[in-house]
C-alpha cells in the first residue's frame, strides 16, 4: 500500500511542478544577488541572506528561510489536503477501500507518502540551493581561517563540517515542523471531498496562527500554536546551539502529529464513503 502511494506521489506531474516552483524562488533570488552583488545587510532581509555572498555554502539555510513562511507550507497543504479528499473527489476512494484495503492502512500509507514528499521537497530545496550557492557565490575553497568562512549568529567561525552538520539538523527540524502542519491538512482531508477545501482549511490555520503570533494578548496560547517554533531551526546556528526552542518545537509537532493523526483515524474509520 505504501509502495502504491509512493508511486502515485512520484508519478503525479503536479507534485514535480510544486517541487520545481519551490526550488525556483531561491534560484531567482540567488541570480539577482549574484548579478547585483547587493546582499541585504545582516539582520535585514531573509535570515542568512546577508552572508551568502561571501560563502555560498550557507545558501541552503537562506533558501530554507525563504520558502518556510509561505511556499513550503502551501505545497505541503496542497499535497496533504489531496490525500483522502483527492481520492474522494475523483471517485476512487470507494474502489480503493473495496480492494480490500483497511482504512487505517490507507491512512498510514498517506501519512508516509506525505512524509516522503516533505523530506524530498526540503532536501531538494537545500541541495539545489547548495549547488546554486556554491556555483554563484563560491564556497568550499574558503576554509575557516580565511576570508569567506561562515560566521555563526554568535560570531564564531563555522567549519564546513560543522556547517553541514547544523544544516542537516535544521533540515530534520523543518521536516518535522512541516509534517506537523501537513497532518492538519490530512485531518481536514478526511472531512471533505474537495482537496482544495482541505488545503484551504490548513492555510486558514496557518494564517490564524501567524496572526496570533503577533498579538500580545495571545501570549498564553502561543506555545501551542503550530507555527510558534517554526523558526527555531535558526537556533542550530548559534554557538552553543540553543536547544530550548528546538526541543519545545519537536515536542509540539510530535503532539500535533499524534493527536491529528488519531483524529483523522477517528473520523475516517467510521465515515460513510459515498464516492
Amino acid at each position: 500500500m505504501i509502495g502504491v502511494e509512493l508511486r502515485k506521489l512520484m508519478l503525479r506531474p503536479r507534485n514535480w511542478l510544486t517541487l520545481l516552483l519551490l526550488c525556483l524562488l531561491p534560484f531567482i533570488v540567488a541570480v539577482f544577488l549574484s548579478v547585483s552583488q547587493l546582499a541585504p545587510p545582516p539582520g535585514q532581509g531573509g535570515a542568512f541572506l546577508s552572508a551568502v555572498l561571501s560563502n555560498g555554502e550557507l545558501y541552503p539555510a537562506a533558501a530554507l528561510a525563504m520558502v518556510l513562511p509561505i511556499f513550503l507550507p502551501l505545497s505541503v497543504a496542497v499535497t496533504a489536503g489531496d490525500s483522502i479528499a483527492g481520492e474522494a473527489g475523483t471517485g476512487t476512494l470507494r474502489y480503493l477501500l473495496i480492494r480490500p484495503v483497511g482504512r487505517v492502512r490507507l491512512l498510514i500509507a498517506k501519512l508516509v507518502a506525505l512524509a516522503v514528499f516533505v523530506v524530498v521537497a526540503i532536501v531538494l530545496v537545500a541541495v539545489t540551493a547548495l549547488i546554486t550557492g556554491v556555483t554563484l557565490f563560491g564556497g568550499g575553497a574558503e576554509a575557516v581561517g580565511q576570508p569567506g568562512a561562515v560566521t555563526s549568529l554568535s560570531g564564531a567561525a563555522l567549519s564546513s563540517d560543522d556547517l553541514a552538520l547544523r544544516l542537516l539538523a535544521a533540515i530534520g527540524y523543518i521536516v518535522v515542523s512541516m509534517l506537523g502542519f501537513g497532518v492538519i491538512a490530512l485531518f481536514a482531508s478526511t472531512f471533505t471531498e474537495s482537496s482544495l477545501g482541505a488545503a484551504l482549511i490548513a492555510l486558514a490555520v496557518l494564517i490564524t496562527s501567524s496572526v496570533l503570533e503577533t498579538l500580545d494578548a495571545a501570549t498564553p496560547v502561543k506555545p501551542y500554536l503550530p507555527t510558534h517554533y517554526w523558526l527555531a531551526w535558526i537556533d542550530f546556528f548559534r554557538d552553543p546551539v540553543f536547544w530550548r526552542s528546538i526541543d519545545s518545537g519537536l515536542l509540539l509537532q510530535a503532539g500535533y502529529i499524534v493527536v491529528l493523526f488519531a483524529a483523522s483515524w477517528a473520523n475516517f474509520a467510521t465515515k460513510d464513503i459515498t464516492s
Binding site: A51, N55, Q146, P147, A149, V150, T151, G155, A156, A157
Partner: peptide, 11 residues
Amino acid sequence: SVTRPQRSPGA
C-alpha cells in the same frame, strides 16, 4: 571557551 570572544575571519 564560552565566555571568551571568538573572532571569525568572515566577520
